[in-house]
Lab assay of single mutants.
Amino acid sequence: QVNIAPGSLDKALNQYAAHSGFTLSVDASLTRGKQSNGLHGDYDVESGLQQLLDGSGLQVKPLGNNSWTLEP
């Protein structure tokens, strides 16, 4: 069960990665100043990332080996 409060997208993504045990490689300029609506409930990694990114204009991309990145 994930419980991440709304706020900074950077912070939300870092909390989610730490909670879910995956690696997220992101260029900080992509997420700077963006906000997230947070995340509450049970999600697989990709669904949770998509939910956190909702409205940010960013997309999640798998890199393999439980690693992910973001792209515009």
Score class of each variant (00 low, 15 high):
residue 65 N to R: 08
residue 39 L to P: 00
residue 62 P to V: 08
residue 5 A to D: 09
residue 43 Y to R: 00
residue 49 L to G: 01
residue 7 G to K: 04
residue 24 L to M: 09
residue 38 G to I: 02
residue 9 L to V: 04
residue 33 G to Q: 04
residue 59 Q to N: 10
residue 28 A to C: 14
residue 50 Q to P: 00
residue 1 Q to R: 14
residue 63 L to D: 07
residue 63 L to P: 01
residue 38 G to V: 00
residue 42 D to W: 15
residue 62 P to C: 12
residue 35 Q to V: 13
residue 41 G to R: 02
residue 36 S to V: 05
residue 34 K to P: 05
residue 52 L to A: 03
residue 71 E to L: 12
residue 17 A to E: 01
residue 24 L to A: 03
residue 35 Q to T: 13
residue 63 L to I: 10
residue 35 Q to Y: 15
residue 1 Q to D: 08
residue 72 P to M: 11
residue 36 S to M: 01
residue 13 L to F: 01
residue 63 L to E: 06
residue 14 N to F: 14
residue 60 V to L: 13
residue 62 P to Q: 13
residue 51 Q to M: 13
residue 62 P to E: 08
residue 25 S to W: 14
residue 48 G to D: 02
residue 52 L to Y: 00
residue 21 G to I: 04
residue 54 D to W: 14
residue 4 I to G: 03
residue 33 G to S: 06
residue 20 S to G: 12
residue 6 P to Y: 05
residue 57 G to L: 05
residue 20 S to C: 15
residue 34 K to V: 07
residue 26 V to P: 02
residue 57 G to K: 05
residue 66 N to M: 08
residue 8 S to G: 06
residue 27 D to C: 13
residue 56 S to C: 08
residue 53 L to E: 00
residue 34 K to T: 01
residue 70 L to P: 01
residue 25 S to M: 14
residue 20 S to A: 15
residue 51 Q to V: 13
residue 68 W to T: 00
residue 9 L to K: 01
residue 68 W to R: 00
residue 12 A to S: 07
residue 40 H to V: 14
residue 45 V to P: 07
residue 20 S to R: 14
residue 53 L to K: 00
residue 16 Y to R: 02
residue 46 E to W: 15
residue 58 L to W: 04
residue 62 P to K: 14
residue 23 T to E: 09
residue 36 S to D: 01
residue 69 T to R: 10
residue 18 A to L: 13
residue 12 A to P: 01
residue 8 S to A: 12
residue 4 I to E: 01
residue 57 G to T: 03
residue 35 Q to G: 07
residue 68 W to G: 00
residue 2 V to H: 06
residue 65 N to W: 08
residue 37 N to Y: 10
residue 57 G to C: 12
residue 7 G to M: 13
residue 2 V to S: 05
residue 69 T to S: 11
residue 55 G to T: 02
residue 32 R to M: 12
residue 2 V to A: 07
residue 41 G to N: 03
residue 38 G to R: 03
residue 59 Q to I: 14
residue 2 V to R: 05
residue 3 N to S: 11
residue 40 H to A: 11
residue 17 A to C: 08
residue 43 Y to P: 04
residue 35 Q to K: 12
residue 29 S to C: 15
residue 13 L to W: 02
residue 19 H to L: 15
residue 18 A to R: 11
residue 71 E to V: 15
residue 25 S to R: 10
residue 5 A to R: 09
residue 68 W to D: 00
residue 36 S to Q: 08
residue 24 L to E: 00
residue 21 G to R: 08
residue 67 S to C: 11
residue 16 Y to D: 00
residue 34 K to L: 12
residue 31 T to V: 13
residue 41 G to D: 03
residue 4 I to M: 02
residue 46 E to P: 10
residue 5 A to N: 08
residue 22 F to I: 15
residue 27 D to Y: 06
residue 16 Y to P: 00
residue 21 G to K: 07
residue 10 D to S: 11
residue 28 A to F: 09
residue 7 G to Y: 02
residue 51 Q to N: 07
residue 19 H to F: 14
residue 66 N to S: 06
residue 12 A to T: 07
residue 43 Y to K: 01
residue 2 V to K: 01
residue 69 T to G: 10
residue 45 V to Y: 06
residue 13 L to M: 04
residue 46 E to Y: 15
residue 39 L to S: 02
residue 11 K to Q: 14
residue 8 S to I: 06
residue 59 Q to L: 11
residue 15 Q to M: 12
residue 14 N to M: 15
residue 21 G to A: 04
residue 36 S to P: 02
residue 37 N to W: 10
residue 60 V to F: 11
residue 61 K to Y: 08
residue 69 T to C: 10
residue 54 D to N: 12
residue 11 K to V: 14
residue 70 L to G: 02
residue 1 Q to P: 13
residue 28 A to H: 09
residue 51 Q to F: 10
residue 2 V to I: 11
residue 54 D to C: 15
residue 3 N to Q: 10
residue 41 G to C: 06
residue 57 G to V: 03
residue 71 E to Y: 10
residue 67 S to H: 14
residue 15 Q to I: 10
residue 51 Q to D: 04
residue 46 E to A: 12
